[in-house]
């Protein structure tokens, strides 16, 4: 199963978004694992990740993550509008597109 990981400062606001993405995935019958984590605990969650999405507020960490994880999986920032609107559908689309499996 594909695994999507979202990261933000505390992992709190992204977990809200994760709930909405999970709902969207279920409605569409897509089997996918979606999780949220904080910048600090990311190491524990990073295994088997297929795509890593950053909350826009920690956009500045993108380079740091790229350096750390290389090209093992795509690393992108979530669109601020989708993030602000907690648009689970769109962020799920974005993640699946990055994985290349839609």
């Amino acid at each position: 199963m594909k695994r999507i990981l979202l990261v933000c400062g505390a992992g709190m606001s992204t977990s809200l978004l994760v709930t909405k993405m999970q709902k969207a995935a279920k409605e569409r019958g897509i089997e996918v694992e979606i999780a949220a984590t904080s910048g600090e605990s990311i190491d524990k969650e990073i295994e088997n990740v297929d795509v890593l999405l950053l909350g826009p507020q920690i956009r500045y960490k993108k380079d740091e993550f790229k350096k750390k994880y290389g090209d093992k999986f795509p690393i992108e920032v979530i669109d601020p509008m989708d993030y602000g609107m907690m648009n689970g559908e769109k962020v799920l689309d974005f993640a699946l597109k990055l994985i290349g499996e839609k």
């Binding site: 933000c8 606001s13 826009p56 993030y83 602000g84 907690m86």
Partner: peptide, 8 residues
């Protein structure tokens, strides 16, 4: 950052 803060 503003959006992130509002939700956080």
């Amino acid at each position: 950052i503003t959006i992130g803060l509002i939700i956080h």
